[in-house]
Amino acid sequence: MKGIWWVLIAVLCSLTAESHGQRGTFMTADEFRELAFPDSEPESGTLWLNAQQQERAAMILRHAYPGLRVRYWRLGQRSAWILEEVGKDQPITMGIVVEKDHIADFAVLAFRESRGGEIRYPFFTDQFRGLTLSDRGDPPALSGSVNGITGATLSVRAASKVAKLALFFHRQVMAGGTSGAD
């Protein structure tokens, strides 16, 4: 009988350790910049969102973008963005590299939720590579599907929203608009 209790305690401990193990900061902004622009020095820029862009961003996120300006790095047709979106109740910090009109790389920089941390692994993030922003549909959608992860639905949804947002911001910057490099 005692043995059963020890097994139960061990299972509970492992579950707790697993949920804590999903949280963490895996990459800093500087490390992400290095990853996005290896051996080169991108220029940093700020995209001040006008009313139309705010409205479009709100359509993608399904809530208002929580700021008036967005920072990015840019080198030629390649840009890198660090964006946040709440999964269940904590923000997930994600880095997205966009080249021309498609996603070149996707990384989770910080994860603060207790579940859904699997979205930081390559088997999930690699799915975003090559995806573009489809003009069909309102709000705009990604050009391809992203497979979900059981138990991480909200984190997957947050990652997809952020990928769309980065593609949208990249398009604004490349079009000129109100953006400009500092």
Binding site: T25, M27, T28, A29, D30, P66, G67, L68, R69, R71, I82, E84, T93, L109, A110
Partner: peptide, 16 residues
């Protein structure tokens, strides 16, 4: 923004 109180940006440990 001091005048309106609108959130311009957030800075967390990821950004130094």
């Amino acid at each position: 923004l001091a005048e309106s109180g609108a959130v311009v940006e957030r800075v967390d440990p990821v950004r130094g």
